[in-house]
């Protein structure tokens, strides 16, 4: 049984692949859990990087984005690379409108994300 409620994880090549359980990532309590679960991936990570695969995610609130920013910061401190992939156009727009595509490396698909690590 998975130790996580909000994400699923899979080790693939040199990456930890993370997928989101919720299609709409907007519930504040779930977002707090999501943040904790994502940060726990950084502690004791053996992979080169983390790929957040947004396949199936149709909505992502600004509160959820804040958790990704924290993950990016912690990953960087721990020498881990972070990639985002498989974003729907509307979700991708979130990152361009907020200029966060300069903070995150966003790839079209999971393969490209892993290759870039």
């Amino acid at each position: 049984m998975s130790e996580f409620e909000c994400i699923t994880t899979e080790a693939l090549e040199n990456a930890t692949i993370v997928k989101f359980v919720d299609q709409r990532v907007m519930n504040p309590a779930r977002i707090e859990s999501l943040g904790r679960e994502l940060l726990s991936l950084v502690d004791g990570a053996v992979a080169t990087g983390i790929v957040l695969n947004f396949d199936g995610v149709s909505f992502f609130s600004s509160a959820a984005i804040n958790k990704l920013i924290k993950l990016e910061s912690e990953s960087r401190k721990n020498g881990l690379q972070l990639r985002l992939s498989n974003l729907r156009p509307e979700v991708r727009d979130l990152f361009s409108y907020t200029n966060l595509d300069s903070l995150f490396q966003i790839k079209d698909n999971q393969f490209d994300a892993i290759e870039s690590l």
Binding site: S61, S62, A63, I65, N66, I69, E72, S73, Y97, T98, N99, L100, S102, L103
Partner: peptide, 10 residues
């Protein structure tokens, strides 16, 4: 960029 404030309003 890494601050929590203002993103929702924007």
């Amino acid at each position: 960029l890494e601050k929590d404030c203002g993103r929702g309003v924007m």
